[in-house]
Nucleic acid binder design. Structure first.
Lengths: 216, 216
DNA sequence: TAGAAATTGGGGGTTTTTCCTGTGTTGAAT
DNA sequence: ATTCAACACAGGAAAAACCCCCAATTTCTA
């Protein structure tokens, strides 16, 4: 490593990406890759054993073992001096916001042009943050007031019921696992049916799927 | 491009990956990247305008406009001499099989080690095909005789019922639109519940979703 | 601190779903 | 000609889902 060079660590379980990314970054003037890790746990260990710390960590979100959210949170707590740049395919507003709340200094989408990566690394070192255009737009959107997009929020119990109702359990069984009376469960059901304008449990499942409330 | 060098075209909408992948492949002895495309449509155009054809096309599956399946099918029909190597994150058996049916000569998972990519390219040129270990295992599994994994086929009426049952209609309504007696519909229901080992209509919806019988 | 709102759940009813068993008809195979 | 399998459908009944109205308690809030 040359002097005055900024160092990067890549945390991604897609070896093909991280491997070729390393070549790319090493070709950038002023940046070099220290090492890789394929998940958060591995990163924790390597941070301990390697003497020199990276300036920037390029962090993927979807990883086995210890995902990007957990890892970012841990890094913010334990290594606040290291700048975390999230690198992900998802431009889902909720994911982006969550990642930034965990302390990421920037969020890059994997569909950016390679040249952009250099700009991103430079900006993070210079100004302390960087975001893809799409991400910036998403962020802007997230702070806009939402006029007609009727806000559908769920209380914790309601959400739990809704998710359980998307399984093969009967309402009686749901009442049991939630330690509530079947009548209360029936109350949740009626309330949700009315609010979401649905006719039966099938409608509930469809709604939950369309709104990412459950995973199949 | 040097003589005797094999040429590669990358089709992927993740510019970051395709950009750094290019660097990687160009560093391989005997391989060089001709150009990129970020979807099937773009590839079609570039194949027309560029005079020299690639030996191999590295093809992502998830793309906007014209996805990997469509593109692979088109390539097989129109450029059978070009070897298509699918490159994807999904190790879902159905996806792999579908891609190979469309004519792909190989299937690489994005979590393979960069060194593997060179082997894959080499193998495709030498032997005509290459698969990741995981993919090979999946393929092997898929051709094993399925003893207990009973083949689930649906008769036309059964399938229609199943799909309608995934809406908010009552069985009575389904019977009406299918011009059958509610009792017949009930017969379909019982038969399906038994065959698919499900307990109620929610189970039916989940099953239909998992098996791509309906779209949300 | 009174009143409103949210939370929980009971009473009691109808409709739909779920389940089991049985019957007549048809068309193909023996 | 008989047997067999499939299909469409019926009767009957229990369980679950669905629906409306009401009440006690807590919690928020004006």
């Amino acid at each position: 490593m040359k002097q005055n060079e900024h160092t990067v660590v890549i945390v991604d379980d897609h070896l093909l990406l991280s491997g070729s990314l390393e070549k790319l970054i090493n070709s950038f003037d002023g940046f070099s890759v220290l090492y890789h890790a394929s998940n958060g746990k591995e990163l924790q260990q390597k941070l301990k054993t390697h003497k020199s710390q990276p300036d920037i960590i390029l962090l993927d979100i979807n990883m086995p073992v210890m995902d990007g959210f957990e890892t970012a949170a841990w890094l913010t707590d334990n290594h606040p001096e290291i700048k975390v740049l999230a690198l992900s395919m998802e431009d889902d507003e909720k994911v982006i916001l969550k990642m930034l709340q965990k302390g990421a200094k920037g969020y890059l989408l994997k569909d950016i042009h390679p040249d952009r990566l250099k700009i991103a690394l430079q900006e993070v070192m210079d100004r302390g943050y960087y975001h893809s255009e799409k991400v910036a737009a998403t962020l802007l959107h997230s702070i806009q007031p939402s006029y007609n997009k009727e806000e559908v929020k769920f209380k914790q119990n309601e959400l739990t019921f809704l998710q359980l109702a998307c399984s093969e359990m009967t309402y009686k069984e749901i009442a049991d696992v939630m330690s509530l009376s079947p009548k209360t469960i029936d109350g949740y059901r009626q309330e949700l049916f009315n609010r979401l304008h649905i006719k039966n449990r099938v409608g509930l499942v469809i709604y939950a799927l369309k709104n990412d409330l459950i995973k199949i």
